[in-house]
């Protein structure tokens, strides 16, 4: 369920109700994996994110067999690095995206990826529930904003993240000069930013 109607209207209701999957999908499950090594929760995370990670990796240029294998490894990493998941800093989708992206760099570019220092990305002693809810609500809002974009604009943003857009492909797909594509992406991002306000 992604329905979050009225979700932001009364934050305290959400806080007292706890984080249900209705409000912040997958946070509970990921935290159960992190704190309780809950395999049932992991299987649910696998069921939701496995097919998405596989599709993402195929879009970045892997064939189905390689994408399948890498998606499995990404999910194993989710299990192994669950102790690094911090719900005040990333939604489950965002966190799993970064793992899938690093797998892509590792496999397709054969490079390691330098990461910024610190990331006390580990769980804090006193998890701030309000910060968790706030971040997850913003993530939901961003997801809705992305879905609400006109299709062409959404596709361009997706392609930027999949990295599957080359000069010639741009020309082939749209027949537009690069300058126009550039303005379109800027417009898409500005709309996205605007709808986040």
């Amino acid at each position: 369920m992604r329905d979050s109607g009225g979700m932001g209207a009364n934050g305290t209701d959400i806080l007292t109700a706890g984080m249900t999957n209705d409000v912040v999908p997958w946070v509970d499950d990921l935290i159960a994996v992190r704190d309780a090594r809950d395999e049932g929760a992991f299987i649910r995370v696998f069921g939701h994110f496995g097919p998405r990670v596989k599709a993402f990796l195929m879009r970045t240029g892997m064939d189905a067999a390689l994408a399948e294998e890498c998606a499995q490894e990404v999910l194993v990493t989710v299990w192994n690095k669950a102790h690094l998941y911090d719900a005040t800093r990333a939604s489950p989708s965002t966190w799993i995206f970064t793992i899938a992206r690093n797998k892509k760099i590792d496999v397709l570019r054969k490079q390691r990826r330098p990461e910024p220092e610190d990331l006390p990305w580990g769980p804090e002693s006193e998890p701030d529930q309000e910060a968790v809810i706030g971040l997850q609500q913003e993530s939901e809002k961003l997801g809705r904003a992305l879905r609400d974009l006109p299709e062409k604009q959404r596709e361009l943003i997706e392609k930027a993240y999949f990295g599957d857009l080359s000069h010639s492909e741009i020309a082939d797909q749209t027949g537009l000069p690069l300058g126009t594509i550039k303005s379109r992406i800027r417009l898409a991002l500005e709309r996205l930013r605007h709808s986040m306000k």
């Binding site: 990333a90 989708s93 966190w95 961003l142 993240y161 996205l192």
Partner: peptide, 9 residues
């Protein structure tokens, strides 16, 4: 990164 997460989702 959050945009990437939304794209994945």
């Amino acid at each position: 990164d959050a945009v990437g997460g939304a794209v994945l989702d």
